[in-house]
């Protein structure tokens, strides 16, 4: 087994294990920590795919900021009693599981079926990579995708205002009736 293949299987094990723990752990704090683990694994997978800058950003944004927020909120709440971690109903639960399984099966089947086709498509090299990939990324982002970039800036502003407004409210979404 080559080093690349070993690395992939190792990281796949980590990410799938972490993701399973996220949905299986009853205590949400453990779920959050498992998700951090998964995200670091995904960042490492990005590195194996030569996307170094995105991997770094993944760790900074997800593991370093978003998940810290989650963990902090969970620790602030300090949920004493998690009465029902999972939704009730065996039949509905089974249907939900089956739906997710079906989706996974469909996607994987499609990938298996089309993998030969994909392999032939990818042989044509688009835009041969030259120079610093991070520089290329920046050039592309601020020329081709400048509109999306600006729109995201506006979205972030709206979200920041909205989040502050929501968090400052005294509790509940409307005050007068229950």
């Amino acid at each position: 087994m080559t080093a690349d293949a070993f690395l992939f299987w190792f990281l796949a094990l980590i990410t799938i294990g972490g993701a399973s723990l996220v949905i299986l752990m009853k205590n949400p704090i453990y779920s959050a920590l498992a998700l951090v683990f998964t995200m670091c694994g995904i960042a490492a997978l990005f590195v194996t795919l030569d996307a170094f800058f995105v991997a770094g950003v993944q760790i900074i944004v997800y593991a370093g900021a978003v998940m810290v927020l989650f963990v902090m909120v969970l620790m602030l709440f300090d949920l004493k009693h998690e009465v029902e971690a999972f939704s009730k109903g065996r039949i509905t639960g089974a249907i939900k599981l089956a739906t997710a399984g079906l989706l996974a099966g469909l996607v994987m089947g499609a990938i298996f079926y089309s993998s030969t086709a994909v392999d032939t498509v990818i042989t044509k090299q688009l835009a041969a990579a030259s120079g610093d990939p991070s520089k290329q990324l920046g050039m592309r982002l601020f020329t081709q995708h400048i509109f999306a970039f600006e729109a995201l800036g506006i979205l972030l502003l709206v979200v920041a205002v909205g989040a502050v407004a929501l968090a400052r409210s005294k509790g509940g979404t409307h005050h007068d009736q229950r």
Binding site: I59, I60, V68
Partner: peptide
Amino acid sequence: EIGVGIVFILGVSSLAAY
């Protein structure tokens, strides 16, 4: 040696919060 050295260092040291 890491090509995106600064990004890596910032990312890794931000894990200290956990």
